[in-house]
Structure formats: C-alpha cells, structure tokens
C-alpha cells in the first residue's frame, strides 16, 4: 500500500517562517562555530609562526595592517564572541539557569547584542 503522503509537498520555506530570537542566537552559534573551525588551521599555523622568531611574531601583530585581513579578523572576533557567549548561555541553561522562556529570550538578545558590540569595537580599532 502506498503511504497517503508519498510524494506529498511539504511547507518548509525558511524565509516564510518567523523565527524567535532564540533561533537567531542558535543559528548564529552554529555559523560562528563553523567559521571558527575553518580558521582553526590558521590558528595552529599562527601559534607556530609566533614562536619561531622575532620578525614572524611582529608580522602576526601587524596582521591588521591590510584592510581585508583586518576585516576577516573582525569577522572572527564576532564569531569567537558570539560562540562563547551563546555557549555560556547554553551551559547555564543546561543546569536550569535562565532556561525559562522569558529569561531565555532576554539572554538570546544579550548574546547577539554583546557579540555585535565587541565586533564593532574591533572594527573601529582595526578598520578606521
């Protein structure tokens, strides 16, 4: 017997779904995690370079002198900040701190805003 819904359409157009703030914080957590993972080889490389010699250490410090590298760094700063704050939010929720809806909404906003402010500060410092 053919299932009634074989070949049936599904409504799952994400642009037509109104996501709560917690979902925005959550997808940001995932996205920032991917960005950090992608940059992990560079971090390992930077560790190696920083220990090799004085000039290579200095070169790393001057990484932000090129605007496109500075921009990438700003994005990574956002990713690190958002991932860290969202992670702390989850760790606390796991043990029942702030896991009620009203508090979870507030903390989701706080995570997004705080990470944004930190990224903005990095941008002002390195890009201006």
């Amino acid at each position: 017997m053919r299932a009634r819904s074989a070949g049936a359409p599904k409504f799952l157009n994400l642009s037509q779904i109104r996501f709560p703030i917690g979902a925005i914080a959550s997808i940001g957590h995932r996205l920032s995690g991917v960005l950090l993972m992608v940059s992990l080889p560079l971090l390992a490389l930077a560790l190696d370079r920083s220990l090799r010699s004085e000039p290579e250490f200095a070169a790393l410090r001057d990484l932000v002198s090129a605007p496109w590298r500075a921009l990438l760094l700003v994005i990574l700063v956002w990713a690190a900040a958002h991932h860290l704050f969202a992670g702390v939010r989850h760790l606390l929720a796991d043990i029942g701190v702030g896991s009620r809806l009203a508090q979870a909404r507030t903390s989701a906003w706080a995570v997004i805003v705080a990470a944004g402010i930190i990224a903005l500060a990095a941008a002002l410092r390195w890009l201006s």
């Binding site: 996501f19 709560p20 917690g22 979902a23 959550s26 989850h90 029942g96 896991s99 809806l101």
Partner: peptide, 26 residues
C-alpha cells in the same frame, strides 16, 4: 535537540518541552 526553544515559544498550552528535555538530560 540543540535547545533552540522554538517548541516552548509556540506551545499553545504554555508548556515547556525544552525544560522537559533539559530534565531528561540531567
């Protein structure tokens, strides 16, 4: 479950499935 809490956001009875999941994990 990634504790997105969309479930608790929309429950028409005001229940909190995310809280139940949190308690199961503990």
């Amino acid at each position: 479950c990634r504790t997105i809490m969309n479930c608790t956001e929309v429950c028409p009875k005001g229940l909190s499935p995310s809280h139940a999941i949190e308690r199961i994990r503990l």
